[in-house]
Each structure stands twice: as structure tokens, then as C-alpha cells.
Nucleic acid binder design. Structure first.
Lengths: 148, 148
DNA sequence: AGAATTTATATGAAAAGGAATATATCTCTG
DNA sequence: CAGAGATATATTCCTTTTCATATAAATTCT
């Protein structure tokens, strides 16, 4: 496998690993009646409701104008609602609805099950080492989305 | 950083690490006058010219109809040329042009330099462990693009 | 306080992407 | 060797994303 440039190129290995593993889960999302951007937003809100639109964009790795439109669609679909910020009226806070929570709950369980499958070949310390290496890469190379 | 679901979720860590590290390099690509899909195609061809269009799509993690359009644009830009397959006339073989090679060469050097920077905090065995873990994930979870 | 600057979100036109399907060629079977 | 099925690429239509910029509110500076 390793006689091509890309097979030893970190950026390719990261992209490919992310792509392949995510593709598996995205197939499962269909059974939950969720599209990928919907899943990302709802999963984010489900452990921190009422985030700003820009925060959501940064956490879900989307551009801000894209998130505006994703939220537009999700609001129409009844999955989230916008509320104007209390102190800072420029802010738009996004809240998950009962319907949104209903739809994301099963997907969250499935996500955990899928992750366990993906990591099933690793022992516990290996799992943590993999995640730690990724977290280190992120810490060194990313802008922090929680500050956005 | 780890009090959110996503911060311990493998698929998110992979997506975020890939996204952040790639974003750094994509900024550099502009200096080489290359767009991201162009870079991916040219980098692939530069270590294996004359691949089929479908192969290119699989290696660069794009869908086939998308690759048709990318190659359309790159052919117009003079970076690649299409040639009909010799034995199998359904095939379309993509070849890099002199201009394409000229443009990608500096970017390839830059890619190696950038990768070295990203991995500069790791010692040699750590670097290999990270790449090996990613290769293992790919082997277990992906369809092999080289068979496409 | 008021003007200038910064920050948060929205908008609009153009480009790109995705799903389904068409077209062309090849392969295999009877 | 005809025809059914499989494979490689292209095309079409529709949705989504991107880029640049507009709008609105808050903050800073003098």
C-alpha cells in the first residue's frame, strides 16, 4: 500500500481515515432520518443547548454563512429554534426542540455503538493513545472553536 | 477541552484534526496558484501518471461525477489531458501536462516541509505510530481506492 | 457623547457538489 | 455471435456551499 506519495503523507492519512470512518456512520444516519449537517448541529446542541450560531459553525467545521442556511433549514424542519441573545442582541442562540432531541437521541446511541465497533480492535491504552495524538494535533494546529 | 461529547468522539477528532491541519496547508497552496482539488489530482498523478478517472476519484476521496467536472476544469486550465484507454475504450486516462508538473513540483516540496512542521513535536517512533494507527483505521474501515 | 471600529449574523449571486440516470464499451453465457 | 448484464465515464437537474458584502448591534477611542 505504501509505494505512493499519499500513503505516507500525514494529511492524506488523516483525510482518508476521517472520510472512511465517517462514511460508515453517515450511512447509519439515514436510518435515523437525519442529514449530516443536521446530525452535527443536533449532537453539538445536545451537550450544550443555546449556543451562538457562530459557535455552532466553528464546532461543526462549517463556515458561518453556511451555518446560517443550515439553521434556516433546520428551523423550518422544526428541529431547532433561534432566539435573540439577551445581553448582546447581535447574538442568535440556537436551541434544540423536543422534536430535534427526539431525533438525535437514537443517533447518539448509535454513534457510541459505531465508535466502539471502529475501536474494537484496539485495547484501552491504544484507544486513548490514538485519541490523545489527535487531540494534540488539534491543539497545536487548530484555532479553538470554543473561543469563536 | 473534554467536557463536550464531541471532544471524546473519535469521528469528531479525526474530522477536526484533518480539517485543521489541512486548512494550514490549503493556505499555502494559494501561493502555488493551485486550488485544493487541483492539488489533489496533480499530487496523485505526480507519482503515477495516466490513471483512470475513476481511480483518481477514489484516491482523492471524490465522487466520480465530481471528478469528471474537476478534470473538465483542469483540462481547460491546461494542467492535465484526457486520453482514451488503449485496450478498454471506455476508460479515460488522465495525464499531467508540463504546465501541471511545473505547478505541482513546488507544492510537493512545500507539502513535505509542512508535514515536517506538523510532526516536529513528535519523535520518530511516535510519528510512525500515529501514521500506523491511521493506516490501520483505513485498512479496517475503508474500501481500497487502488482497486477501484 | 459621537464617530470609528469591531463583532455577530444575514443575504445574494455564482460555483460546486450530489443523486439518479444516460451512453458507450466490454464480458460472459448459451 | 447475439443478447443480457456489468463497468467506465458523462450528463442533467437540483441542492448546497462559497465568497464577498450588507446589516445591525456593541465597543472603543477621543
Amino acid at each position: 500500500m505504501a509505494d505512493r506519495f499519499v500513503d505516507d503523507y500525514l494529511l492524506y492519512l488523516l483525510a482518508r481515515a476521517s472520510n472512511d470512518v465517517s462514511a460508515q456512520f453517515h450511512a447509519r444516519l439515514k436510518h435515523h432520518g437525519l442529514q449530516v449537517p443536521e446530525w452535527r448541529v443536533l449532537a453539538t446542541l445536545s451537550d450544550g443547548d443555546g449556543r451562538r450560531l457562530g459557535e455552532l459553525a466553528a464546532i461543526t467545521l462549517q463556515h458561518q454563512p453556511t451555518m446560517t442556511k443550515i439553521v434556516d433549514r433546520m428551523e423550518k424542519a422544526g428541529l431547532v429554534v433561534r432566539r435573540q441573545g439577551a445581553e448582546d442582541r447581535r447574538e442568535v442562540r440556537i436551541h434544540i426542540t423536543a422534536e430535534g432531541r427526539r431525533r438525535v437521541d437514537a443517533a447518539l446511541e448509535d454513534a457510541k455503538a459505531h465508535e466502539a465497533e471502529v475501536l474494537s480492535g484496539y485495547d484501552a491504552p491504544e484507544k486513548e493513545r490514538l485519541k490523545d495524538m489527535l487531540r494534540t494535533l488539534i491543539a497545536r494546529n487548530g484555532e479553538r472553536p470554543d473561543r469563536a
